[in-house]
Amino acid sequence: MATIAIVGAGPGLGFSIGKVFGQQGFEVALIARRRSTLDDMVGRLGELEIPAGGYQADIMDRASLVQAFKDIAANHSPVEVLEFSPAPRGPQPGLVLAGPLDVSVANVQPHIDFYVHGAITATGQVLPDMIERGTGTLLFTTGPSSVEPSPAMGNVGIACAALRNWVLNLHDTLASKGVYAAHVPLSLSADEADPETIAPHYWNLHTRGEGAEHLLSGDVLRAAPRTEES
């Protein structure tokens, strides 16, 4: 049995991705800041007879994130899939929005810590083993500002675009090592952002293992089948 580790797991998309992979035979390791959220998701997955564990960590506290992966390694099968999709839920110190004219080192750095340093830290905990095994999938989720400039997210876009650049380079570098890395920017309106509809696409990306970037828009969701068997 293999494990999917979901960093930034929440009751929406993170939970739905865990459910899809769990129904395909994966163990599910959820990483989030709030213990109550983790316990609720683990309980709901348990009701579906999906083996799952919740691991509390703050992406801005890299030591806690490293420890979460140590605990996952002690309690689960090897991590075959890493899905990184953190999104601030509620106020967090320093994570503010700024337009292009208001961008500063002070309001960009926290987003770089959150998205870029968080992704690098999480990846570093699983990638060496993936390379050694010659198999694994790394999926990194961002919003549309990583691909298309959005003035309202002038500082966030800098961090997300930097993460995208790294993931695209990872994709090319890992192609010969049996490890698949891809960037998944979500560009969805509120009425299109249904986690139950979006989550099966992550399974499809894992099983296909093709392409460095997969924009998920309403048109893509409507055109694709819900789930493909491996």
Rank of each mutant, 00 (worst) to 15 (best):
P11I: 05
Y115M: 01
Q67R: 14
L174V: 05
G218W: 01
F140L: 08
Y55L: 09
K19C: 03
I59V: 11
G10S: 13
G136C: 06
N155L: 01
T121N: 03
H76K: 13
W203T: 04
G134M: 12
A5W: 09
L138K: 11
Y202A: 08
Y115L: 00
A87P: 00
G218P: 01
S64K: 09
V81A: 14
R35W: 13
A212H: 05
A74M: 05
D61M: 07
G154K: 10
V96N: 12
R35M: 15
W166T: 13
Q23C: 02
V147S: 13
A223G: 11
G8D: 04
N155A: 03
W203S: 10
G134I: 12
E49Q: 14
A152M: 13
Q109N: 09
R226I: 00
V184N: 06
I158A: 11
V167F: 15
P151G: 04
V116M: 14
P11H: 10
R222I: 00
G134L: 14
L139A: 05
V179P: 05
L188K: 00
A2E: 13
G14E: 11
H214G: 00
A152E: 14
V42L: 09
P144V: 07
G143N: 06
G94H: 12
G46F: 01
L205N: 00
V96Y: 11
G157F: 11
A152Q: 12
S176D: 10
L95Y: 08
G209Q: 07
G46I: 01
D102W: 00
K177S: 13
E80W: 15
G54E: 07
S77N: 15
V81C: 12
G118F: 09
A74R: 13
A181H: 11
A122Q: 07
P128G: 12
T227Y: 10
G157T: 06
R133A: 15
M130P: 03
F84Y: 13
A5C: 11
I131M: 14
G14D: 08
E228T: 04
L174C: 06
L168F: 07
A223M: 07
G22Y: 03
D219C: 00
I6E: 14
P88H: 04
I59K: 03
C160D: 10
H214W: 15
D219T: 00
E49F: 14
S217M: 03
R62A: 08
D113R: 13
G46T: 00
V103P: 02
S77G: 05
L127H: 10
N169M: 14
L163W: 10
P149E: 09
E27G: 08
G18I: 02
P86E: 04
I50L: 06
H201F: 08
A223W: 07
G178F: 12
P91W: 03
F69N: 07
Y180S: 01
G209C: 02
E229W: 00
L216N: 02
V108D: 11
V126Q: 09
G143I: 05
D61T: 04
L13V: 02
A162G: 15
Q125T: 12
V7M: 09
I4T: 04
A57G: 05
G18A: 09
F15C: 01
D191V: 06
S16K: 07
P110K: 02
L97M: 12
T227G: 05
P225K: 07
G25R: 03
G14F: 12
I4H: 10
D129P: 01
H183Q: 14
